[in-house]
Nucleic acid binder design. Structure first.
Lengths: 334, 334
DNA sequence: GCAGGCGATGACAGCGCTGTCAATTGGCAC
DNA sequence: GTGCCAATTGACAGCGCTGTCATCGCCTGC
């Protein structure tokens, strides 16, 4: 039989309730008492029984990470960060893939909640921006944190300054002397799409370059969308000398299409992406891009959620730094 | 307050224990009684409280998926499959990334087990092949299932016939008239590495082609290893007309290196990979490869594990079908 | 030195379910 | 119709912990 809280109490010469207080880091335990209990717990290698704790405390010590189809690299990073945070506070994490477009999306989250009773949810884009879901969560009074939500007000989570990052990567191209810079946008339903377009326009505007709608092509974050957009752009009589694709997959598609058109990257055309996914290092030339600290974003968002759950503060919306990764796909304008 | 088992019992006019029996699908409940209970449960939208169940039954209804660094695509697929299986039987799943090389690897699994008390583990390569871990799991009497383990005997899980798949993809090259076929191996610590090499040798042997050690280069499953191996192979005076890389990332590296050497794929050299990861469709030319049903492998392995946990059978080691995906990176020998 | 007040600790019940074992029922042979 | 056995059902305790509230002890101020 395992070591139980009662055993620790006996060994420490206190009541079970006092051990419980120490375990849960509650106030009103005298220093020496706490020490005694901690020593006994360590000596006996005590581990609280999660189910017993949950049952008695009416909390699950469980956080659910909910996602729909982000790239698996991104997801794995976020997931790892959330796990980091959960481990720090002895919470568990479960994962739940869902289809945000499906009719029963909100209902499925209801089911998730009533089955597993997570103490809080961690949402990833685009689930962060589903109004009915957020309304339902408020209704059920289930706390949640969001990674890169479209609307940050009133919620807790983590984000980077996307427009600024986009300005910076476009600024890098401007600094190399490029003036005809095209942009391939992301999927219209993602917040990132708008932010990156905004950053692109702001950077051009700050450099005194007029906005040319012919240089902006709608994509959807996929490799093939990058190919299609690039075919269109490279067929223009006055073709761009640089392309800012709203993510790395599309940038890879642009680079492929460049080869198809007999254009060499970066000699004839510079290409930049966004996200710093592994593909940015797996293609040739390697891709200049923006690195998001995805794992850290998952971790921080989860930590803020846990802080709120544990009643240590309200939970904040935290801004994290990004970093421009200059690689081989960009060069001075020829 | 939520609906409890007691409420259902009252509504159905039976004792709580009988409801429990129906809930747990136990024998010795008469048909009509079962119906009555099921009807009451449905009418009241009853959900058992997981913690209460775990506490009383001394089982967690939890499976832990343990992994070290597989590619995130592979991991996500496996994870989704395991979740599919867990959902089918109202189990939960947790995930746990670990470093198999670290000194405290087994200890960390011990900690995982004593903290979260999963009823079983789901192992992915290369964790499937860690003798001390497996020994420890037997010692602790914790059931586990393995996906693609090196040693299948006596364990439960899912696998594909890797040597046969390798024979098939090499056979595809042979069918295109290739005779000088090189092989870039995987990381020596992975079972797949040996199987794929074996399949390669068997295919050549069956075609009456002598084995040439100069055409086999050791890699490690990474893009850059593919590049390095290909540089070596393409510098041979009698260079190969086709390359079988032990996974897609290395195949992508081979294709890149071909460009570097002024070789066109597939005109001058055919390249095949293994795994059918997204990169096989994101590069140009798209990659001929072997598709593993990873999600299904996760699902089936988990189902077998659950069957064993629930006492419905012993749990089997199940073979699943693979499929050769012919794409653009292979062509008849020039 | 003593009342008053607050911080620290403990007693106790019970969270929602299942294991054990006892009680009851139904079915069948005769 | 009766007796017997197995199948079915129920009573009860308790899984390991925490919430609530009562109690205890110590320090403060006069």
């Amino acid at each position: 039989m395992r070591v139980r809280l009662e055993d620790v109490a006996r060994a420490a010469g206190v009541s079970p309730k006092t051990v419980s207080r120490v375990l849960n880091d509650e106030a009103n335990v005298r220093g020496p008492t706490r020490e005694k209990v901690l020593a006994a717990m360590a000596a006996m290698d005590y581990r609280p029984h999660p189910s017993a704790r949950s049952l008695a405390a009416n909390r699950s010590f469980l956080v659910a990470t909910v996602y729909d189809n982000p790239s698996s690299n991104y997801l794995t990073e976020i997931q790892t960060g959330v796990l980091d945070a959960c481990d720090e506070h002895h919470y568990s994490m479960m994962v739940r893939p869902l289809h945000v477009e499906s009719a029963d999306f909100v209902e499925r989250i209801d089911t998730l909640i009533s089955h597993h009773r997570p103490d809080g949810l961690l949402l990833t884009p685009p689930i962060t921006d589903h109004p009915q879901l957020l309304a339902r969560l408020h209704e059920l009074d289930v706390p949640y944190a969001s990674v890169s939500p479209m609307n940050r007000s009133g919620s807790i989570g983590a984000f980077i300054d996307e427009p600024k990052a986009a300005r910076e990567v476009v600024g890098h191209l401007l600094g190399l002397g490029h003036r005809r810079i095209a942009h391939v946008t992301g999927h219209p339903s993602h917040g990132a799409t708008g932010w990156r377009l905004t950053g692109y326009r702001e950077a051009l505007s700050a450099a005194g370059i007029p906005f040319d709608p012919a240089l902006v092509v709608e994509g959807d974050f996929s490799f093939s969308a990058g190919v299609a957009a690039a075919r269109q752009l490279f067929s223009l009589s006055d073709r761009p000398t640089a392309v800012f694709a709203a993510n790395d997959d599309m940038a890879a598609g642009v680079i492929w299409a460049a080869g198809e058109h007999g254009l060499s990257v970066p000699r004839d055309v510079s290409v930049v992406g966004f996200d710093d996914t592994p593909i940015s290092r797996q293609i040739w030339p390697t891709l200049t891009t923006i690195r998001q600290p995805s794992r850290e974003m998952g971790r921080i968002a989860a930590l803020e959620l846990l802080a709120a759950l544990r009643g240590k503060g309200e939970g904040r919306m935290v801004q994290l730094p990004y970093a421009l990764q200059v690689r081989e796909s960009t060069a001075p304008v020829g």
